[in-house]
């Protein structure tokens, strides 16, 4: 097979894990927070797409952009502060 997989869900889990300083195993299932197949479909190489999905997960506000950029910030700070973690 050998193809490159987008794995945006893995990127989200790892980013949140890094931001919280907790192992991925300690996080709740991402599939409880969002339809993960749908999230996969948001990310594309087509630059004409400009889509951003926002959801909360494990006490964090998560933003996923269609160019596969992931932003994470604590839920309470999401209204005023700029994102403090990105990949």
């Amino acid at each position: 097979m050998g193809s490159v997989h987008k794995d945006i869900c893995v990127t989200v889990s790892e980013t949140v894990s890094d931001a919280l300083g907790e192992p991925v195993d300690a996080l709740p299932p991402l599939s409880d927070a969002i339809h993960t197949d749908g999230l996969d479909a948001v990310v594309t190489n087509d630059r004409s797409h400009d889509v951003t999905v926002t959801f909360s997960y494990a006490g964090m506000r998560v933003l996923v952009h269609s160019d596969s950029t992931v932003y994470v910030c604590p839920l309470r700070a999401s209204r005023t502060d700029s994102p403090d973690t990105y990949v």
Partner: peptide, 26 residues
């Protein structure tokens, strides 16, 4: 199977990404 390499030649990153994907999503 995905990376088409024997299991004992996988990098830890290759293994971890699949693990996280299975554990968190599938």
């Amino acid at each position: 199977m995905e990376n088409d390499v024997p299991a004992d030649e996988l990098t830890s990153q290759q293994r971890k990404r699949v693990y996280v994907s299975l554990y968190q999503t599938h």
